[in-house]
Design a protein around this nucleic acid. Sequence first.
DNA 1: TTCTCTTATGACACCGATGACATGACACCG
DNA 2: CGGTGTCATGTCATCGGTGTCATAAGAGAA
Lengths: 360, 360
Amino acid sequence: MATIYDVARIAGVSPKTVSRVLNGDAPVGQATREAVQAAIAQLDYVPSNAARMMRSQRSGLIGLITGAISMSPEPNQPAGLPELFIVQGIQKSLANSGMTLMIADTGGVVEKAAPLIDTFLRHRVEGLIYVAEYHQKVALPVISDGTPMILANCFDDRGTPAILPDDKRGQLDLVARLITAGHRRIGYLTLRPEIAAGRLRLEGYRAALQAGGIAYDAALVENCDLEGRDGETQLLWEAIDRMLRLANSPTVFCCGNDKMALRVYGILRSMGRKVPTEVSVAGYDNYRVIAETLYPPLTTVDLPYTAMGVRAAQRLMAMISEETREDKGPTLVAGPVYWRDSVTELRPANVSLLKSVREE
Amino acid sequence: MATIYDVARIAGVSPKTVSRVLNGDAPVGQATREAVQAAIAQLDYVPSNAARMMRSQRSGLIGLITGAISMSPEPNQPAGLPELFIVQGIQKSLANSGMTLMIADTGGVVEKAAPLIDTFLRHRVEGLIYVAEYHQKVALPVISDGTPMILANCFDDRGTPAILPDDKRGQLDLVARLITAGHRRIGYLTLRPEIAAGRLRLEGYRAALQAGGIAYDAALVENCDLEGRDGETQLLWEAIDRMLRLANSPTVFCCGNDKMALRVYGILRSMGRKVPTEVSVAGYDNYRVIAETLYPPLTTVDLPYTAMGVRAAQRLMAMISEETREDKGPTLVAGPVYWRDSVTELRPANVSLLKSVREE
DNA sequence: TTCTCTTATGACACCGATGACATGACACCG
DNA sequence: CGGTGTCATGTCATCGGTGTCATAAGAGAA
């Protein structure tokens, strides 16, 4: 591999002049510049980042760690990868910063994060971003040197800067919109409360009911999330069946996420209930493969992953450049409601009509 | 940031001895080793890859370029990312090689591949892998130095080593299995022929019919792929409607991919046709979010992405270590058929029964 | 006892860039 | 015409490791 010395020799100049042509950090004569460029082309010279980095003490690298790329191949694991949008947002936002993004993957194994961080530190990255597969708490090894770090889609109890989806707000907005559309009996098939999204979305649901002056009814809320284990369809079927048999049955089912909504579509249709004319369905995540492809398209709440990625990158760049390394705590990012055809607008007039249809 | 000299000073040894402790490439006395390790821990010393690399002339890096991570945010673009399994396969296979995988992303913009390759060459990667979003032909800039390169899920006309899914074989296997199950009238809602998968899968379909002694009927094959533009559901609806009105209508619909199958489920149900008792459906891709979550689960063909990734990594490592840099041409990898509940096993006896049901 | 041989360690140069500093050639100014 | 800037370019040291070679201290062998 050709070096800057080879180029200098061919061009008949000093290595330093070649360096100046490459970096444009000092004036170079026109003729000299052209000779150098010709020599570079002739030799297919590519400068060595390692050497440059040693001298300048700047790597221009940002390290990104994610389990998003290679999630578990187990059939029961969540197979959705929408969090990749976070990476996309980060990239977009970093594109003009002159930084190179290096992505490494834990393969879904959290323990691999530590060695990957180490690898990045060996490469002297100027900042680190850890992207989690879903909104959760994490405990990463402490970065002993001053390299700034950002958590995306996760948080820890050390106050490390974090970018999080505003799940409570999202569910609140969705349910508020359902209430506006005339729905009063709102079933909620929840995610398990062990995960952050499960808790926060339920909080949002309750907050929206309260804001709308609707009493919370425990019979309309069931956890239908088996953590990917079998029997989820069964569980959903039974929960839906129970709710539909209620005297005052729900006019809409909110689902913990879009994947659950996909299942609910199948179940409702198997029960002979038409979506949305007889019963409405809403999801969460705006997982587009599902939400846009379903028939009818699914009303849902966007998880603002791209925006989160952009925020993460911006906050990291601020920490790097402004030495604001004392920056702490979470940033919440809310996503919009996507109103699609899976939810009927109930004017008060035909609420009773609908009921009579169902009760016959 | 502490250097090897700092460690050496604290430990009271020479830098070279610290290096020996780190790399284990020469015997070091027990007491010395412990002193060095203590100093390393005390200083939070992390060796610099750049310096190491300069001297040893080996980067230990593999560069991976993909558009998989940040595909277009346009709503009409393909939003499926199963090709990330390729990356997973590569990682798995590279994990024990001592190589570090650096992933960079084109953001879906092919033109960005060239600067990314350049960045990788500056880092002196020992090998390059390009992963395409879907089975396609590409034209990447020539790598002028000897760095080996592998194409995954794509190919070029320079004979660059490539790893490809065997789409023809997969569709053939699926249709052959349908024939075994007693299906004789097999509708095929195809992808557009402009893409490799569209062509090859149709070839497989025809080859299977021929092998099964069934005449090809053009009325049973329609292109229902609008390249993501609107109206696809409409197009599918009409195609399905036409085929179902045929005197000898299909007992099963093969879909160009699983996403199309998801649409077809919705359409068939809206038409009042039960899946699979009245009509069967099969997909392609084994896109698990869809195939496993649909109700009933979808029969489909696996795209052996993980296996392709493993192959790609293996072939690359062979090129790197064995200097087999003259390696050329494609490797085809076939995936298995996943037989699930969306297809009925028709024993010859009840074929006629089914027909009468449909004709009433 | 002297001569290998192995183990344990250090001295020093070098990998390929670039920062700091120096120098020579002009141009412009008063 | 000397002084002062700017432009264009070169010299040299240096970043942080590691390869090469040298050396010293014991352990066995002859």
